[in-house]
């Protein structure tokens, strides 16, 4: 019987078929592994005091209460209900790629999106979903009901059409479609025109949305660890290239790192979060970086 934490590993969660169970297992594994609740400060408001016990975060001690009562209390929070979150999932053909037997980039993104949806629904946040490739395939406005989560998970579990990437255009459309400010969480490999995508992300920020970008790459894309000469084919353009991976690896990794750091710099300068992940990364690392970025914001 796998432990709760083991479900944070992509190769374990791959064996779970039902997406709702995937989401539940990931979140429960994540919560079980936490020593400090990340909820405090994330999309929450103050609810009540509770007595301080050693081990609690001293930062949460209410010193005003201590001054009045001479006893240590910590502030407890409860989730807000007015946060509207949109999960934006890129379902283009470039996302439907796995170099080995593990999860594809899309499956990894879907698992992560499902886990976040599950997490936020538990906090009574409203969650919506937008799936797209070269056009918007599904648009679900955010609701905080339990039924909404079921619909989102059902929609995510549906096989993708797998068209070409038109990420920038899709993000502009989403920015126009969602008038109310909220949280946008994008799952994509960002393999579109870099400047156009950057401009579209700025557009979302300009509309007042909080923004978190999960840059999802395959393990091989992140490490480029091919050993023998390979003929690589782009699934979207059909372009091929025969190359010696050992010769180009260092330069490739450098370019990829520069690409990611450009996005990180641009997004962080606009108070948005950029979370680089690859399909070999346990889900808790992705979730933690997501929650930490929310916490910093709060």
């Amino acid at each position: 019987m796998p432990t709760a934490e083991s479900y944070l590993r992509p190769e374990v969660i791959q064996q779970v078929r039902r997406l709702d169970l995937k989401a539940r297992f990931i979140v429960e594994g994540f919560m079980a592994g936490l020593h400090d609740s990340p909820y405090h400060g994330f999309s929450v408001e103050f609810s009540e005091h509770s007595k301080y016990v050693p081990g609690d975060d001293p930062g949460l001690i209410d010193y005003n209460a201590w001054a009045r009562t001479d006893k240590l209390y910590i502030r407890n929070y409860r989730a807000e209900t007015n946060l509207a979150c949109h999960l934006l999932v890129d379902q283009s053909s470039s996302m439907d790629f796995a170099s080995g037997a593990g999860l594809t980039k899309l499956e990894y993104a879907i698992s992560l999106a499902a886990a976040l949806g599950y997490l936020m629904t538990r906090q009574h946040d409203a969650v919506g979903l937008v799936t797209f490739d070269e056009q918007i395939r599904n648009f679900m406005p955010p609701y905080s009901t339990r039924r909404q989560l079921t619909s989102i998970l059902a929609e995510l579990a549906r096989p993708p059409v797998g068209g070409k990437t038109r990420l920038a255009e899709m993000l502009h459309q989403v920015a126009r479609l969602v008038p109310k400010r909220g949280l946008m969480i994008l799952f994509s490999d960002l393999l579109d025109d870099e400047a156009a995508v950057m401009e579209a992300l700025h557009h979302l920020r300009f509309r007042g949305h909080d923004l978190i970008v999960f840059h999802v790459l395959d393990e091989m894309e992140a490490n480029f660890s091919y050993s023998a000469p390979v003929c690589l084919e782009d699934p979207e353009s059909g372009q091929t290239l025969t190359t010696d991976p050992q010769a180009v690896r260092a330069d490739y990794l450098e370019r990829l790192a520069a690409f990611r750091s450009r996005f990180r710099r641009e997004l962080e300068s606009r108070k948005a979060a950029f979370v680089p992940v690859d399909t070999s990364l346990p889900f808790d690392k992705a979730l933690t970086s997501f929650l930490l970025s929310r916490r910093r914001k709060a």
Binding site: S93, D218, Y226, C231, L232, E233, E236, L256
Partner: peptide, 26 residues
């Protein structure tokens, strides 16, 4: 000399840039 194996690789743009930059030197 083996025939290079064919692989799908979405992030080909970075490889193409690296390939053109390093192939002469290699």
């Amino acid at each position: 000399r083996s025939r290079p194996k064919e692989r799908t690789f979405p992030a080909l743009r970075f490889v193409t840039e690296s390939h053109h930059a390093t192939v002469k030197l290699t």
